[in-house]
Amino acid sequence: MTIHNLYIFDRQGTLVYYGEWNRKKPGTMSREEEGKLVYGMLFSLRSFLDKISPLDMNDNSFLYRTTKYKMNYWESPTGVKFLMNTDLNAPNIKELLRTIYQQVFVEYVVKNPVLAIGAYIDSELFIQKLDELIKSSLSYTSKV
């Protein structure tokens, strides 16, 4: 199993962080361009799901699958959006995204007064802690 990449958007839809672990097909666009495209897709998908749903939806997460990968989405109550692409078997990514938010994002971004709110995150400490968490997660390590 593997984790491909992670996008973090703030509530305005600005890409505040992009991380990559096992991405075999490099993107053809700049990071900013790709971020806008991904956010546009997310935004449409969210309102689409909301309108088309036959049941009352009260969830801050969803995922889709292709034949090759799985896209997992989770949003915090404050509107910070996490989008992670994994392989098809990766379990419990929603919980992993929540953990990233609580243990890495809040600790090393929100509590770091040097980082401006809404700016791209360039803190090495944040990147290091995120990498540790991802690499210790079951979805990254197990070889099934």
Binding site: P113, V114, Q128
Partner: peptide
């Protein structure tokens, strides 16, 4: 402790 574990942001 939340800011850096390297020389980054040292000027602060």
């Amino acid at each position: 402790s939340k800011i850096s574990a390297t020389k980054q942001y040292l000027e602060n």
